Every structure is written in C-alpha cells, then in structure tokens.
Simulated scan of single mutants.
Amino acid sequence: MKLLLILSLLYLAYIDWHTFRLPDYVTLPLICIGIVFNAVSEPGFTNTSSALIGGIMGYGFLWALNTGFRAIKGRNGIGMGDAKLLAALGAWLGWVALPNILFIASFLGLIGGLAWLKFNKQKLHQAFPFGPFLAIAGIIELLWPQFIQNLLPQLI
C-alpha cells in the first residue's frame, strides 16, 4: 500500500506542477481509500478514528486558512485541491502526521517557491503549485515518520 500511496502522490505532484490543478478524480478516491485501508487493515498506518479526524482536519485547516486569507485579501491564497490532498494525507497517515507534513511542505515550498519565482521571472504575488511540496512532505512522513523529531535536536 505504501507504493500505491507514493505513486499517487508523485502523479499528483507531476499534474499540479504542470497544470496548477489537483484533480478530484485522484484526490477524492485517495481520501476514501486511506480511510478504508486504515479501517480494514490490521497493521494500517493509523487507526480508523485518526484517519477520519486526519481527513477532516487536513481539509478543514487549509479551508479555514484560505477563507481567512480571502476575507483579508479578497482572493484565494491556496487551492482547494491542496486541501483535498492534505485531507488524503491525513486519511492515510492520521491527524498526528499533519503538523509534520505542513512543516516540511511549508519549508520546501518556501525554498521551492522562491526558486520558482526567480526561475520563471515572476513577482511575489504570482501563484505557484503547492501540491508537489505537500506530496513530497507526505512521502517523507510515510517513509521516515520521525524525520522532524530526529532532525530538530541536530539543528539545535
């Protein structure tokens, strides 16, 4: 199942990088499959309640963030495809993985976003795809779940 999740995340990263879209025909089934997998699989990645809460919190956090941004700036700050992708990651890995995923994705997105803007000669207000960074962060959290906890003491 890890391979299925990794391949799905890589596919979504590729699509988002090229189209700025995360298609519902991949993200929505990925949410459902993550919840079902954790419900029926004995050694799943998390328990069923954590998967359900992860799906809700993953979507809800980015939805709330975007709603606040839109109220202040009058435009969207993040796409809802990103929220569905984070919901899928929460459904697969549980709600406890979401802070690590968001931290890693934000850090990579900051570096990648600045490189994207410089490489494409765009201004700071131009959009760039965040899905690839969420996907990479999800893969890191799937394969090395203690990555942040192991990295922080070395940095401090």
Rank of each mutant, 00 (worst) to 15 (best):
residue 112 G to N: 11
residue 97 A to K: 07
residue 53 I to M: 07
residue 39 A to M: 07
residue 66 N to Y: 03
residue 93 L to A: 13
residue 65 L to W: 05
residue 71 A to H: 12
residue 77 G to E: 02
residue 86 L to K: 12
residue 88 A to F: 13
residue 74 G to S: 15
residue 109 G to D: 06
residue 57 M to C: 09
residue 76 N to T: 03
residue 52 L to A: 11
residue 112 G to E: 13
residue 114 L to Y: 04
residue 103 F to E: 02
residue 111 I to D: 14
residue 100 N to K: 09
residue 106 S to H: 09
residue 44 G to F: 14
residue 104 I to A: 03
residue 81 G to M: 10
residue 68 G to K: 08
residue 109 G to T: 05
residue 81 G to F: 08
residue 87 A to L: 06
residue 110 L to T: 09
residue 50 S to L: 04
residue 111 I to T: 10
residue 87 A to T: 03
residue 105 A to K: 11
residue 76 N to P: 02
residue 59 Y to H: 02
residue 63 W to Y: 10
residue 113 G to C: 02
residue 108 L to K: 01
residue 109 G to A: 04
residue 107 F to G: 05
residue 68 G to A: 11
residue 98 L to E: 12
residue 84 K to M: 00
residue 112 G to S: 09
residue 91 A to W: 08
residue 67 T to R: 15
residue 58 G to E: 02
residue 52 L to P: 15
residue 83 A to E: 12
residue 70 R to T: 13
residue 83 A to C: 14
residue 89 L to C: 10
residue 44 G to E: 14
residue 103 F to K: 00
residue 112 G to L: 06
residue 113 G to D: 00
residue 42 E to K: 15
residue 54 G to C: 06
residue 44 G to V: 08
residue 113 G to A: 01
residue 45 F to A: 07
residue 39 A to S: 13
residue 68 G to L: 13
residue 77 G to W: 01
residue 102 L to I: 06
residue 42 E to T: 10
residue 105 A to S: 15
residue 89 L to G: 07
residue 80 M to N: 14
residue 81 G to K: 07
residue 93 L to P: 00
residue 101 I to W: 01
residue 89 L to W: 09
